[in-house]
Simulated scan of single mutants.
Amino acid sequence: MRRAHHPEAGEITLTGVMAALSDPIRVGLVRVLADGRERGWGELQAPVAKSTLSHHLRVLRDAGLTRTRQEGTRCFVVLRREDVQARLPGLLQAVLAAAEEDDIGRQVSVKGAERPA
């Protein structure tokens, strides 16, 4: 399998990040990953087809918001919080706070985790 491209921290752009965060599913994925834990793609639940979830994860990766690691046939993803903070200070915190307040991305969760009421 081909190696995934991850932009360097200096290549992360405001417009790229904002475009990636223009979809509620992607905002939900960022909310789930904001706990700092690396997650297997199979752990992530969203009300979309697996191929669509894969697309959303690729958009986040291409924008520099996440890092994907492959181990055998499994893929794992983690939020690049430090890189985004270094390049765009305060942006991620503001997005996460607004998403929480406006309840954006609530439909995304981790398998086995209790969904918020």
Score class of each variant (00 low, 15 high):
R2Q: 11
R3Q: 13
R3H: 09
H5L: 09
E8L: 11
E8M: 05
E8D: 15
A9V: 13
A9I: 08
A9D: 13
G10L: 04
E11V: 04
T13V: 08
T13I: 07
L14G: 07
T15K: 05
T15E: 12
T15C: 05
V17Q: 10
V17I: 11
M18S: 09
A19S: 12
A20Y: 11
L21V: 04
L21H: 01
L21I: 04
D23S: 09
P24V: 03
P24G: 03
I25S: 04
I25T: 14
I25V: 15
I25D: 10
V27H: 00
L29N: 07
L29A: 04
A34K: 00
A34D: 12
D35C: 00
G36Y: 02
G36M: 02
R37W: 00
E38W: 01
E43L: 03
E43K: 01
E43F: 02
Q45C: 12
P47S: 11
V48L: 12
A49Q: 15
K50M: 07
K50F: 07
K50L: 13
S51T: 13
T52Y: 08
T52I: 10
L53K: 12
S54V: 00
H56L: 07
H56D: 15
L57C: 08
L57Y: 02
L57P: 04
L57A: 06
L57G: 14
R58M: 10
V59T: 14
L60A: 11
D62H: 08
D62F: 03
A63C: 08
G64T: 12
G64N: 11
G64M: 09
G64A: 10
L65F: 05
L65D: 04
L65V: 13
L65W: 02
T66N: 06
R67I: 08
T68L: 08
T68K: 05
R69Y: 06
E71T: 03
E71K: 01
G72E: 04
T73P: 00
T73Q: 05
C75L: 06
C75I: 01
F76C: 02
V78R: 15
R80K: 03
R81D: 15
R81M: 07
E82A: 10
Q85I: 01
Q85M: 06
A86I: 00
A86G: 07
L88A: 11
L88Q: 10
P89S: 14
G90S: 03
L92Q: 06
L92P: 14
Q93T: 05
A94V: 02
V95T: 12
V95F: 02
V95L: 08
L96T: 01
L96V: 02
L96I: 03
A97H: 07
A98C: 02
E100P: 00
E101A: 15
D102M: 10
D102W: 05
D103W: 06
D103V: 06
I104A: 11
G105L: 10
R106L: 07
R106N: 08
R106T: 10
V108F: 09
S109L: 11
S109G: 14
S109C: 13
V110Q: 15
V110K: 13
K111A: 15
G112I: 06
A113W: 08
E114L: 13
E114R: 14
E114A: 13
R115H: 05
R115E: 14
R115K: 13
P116A: 13
P116C: 01
A117I: 02
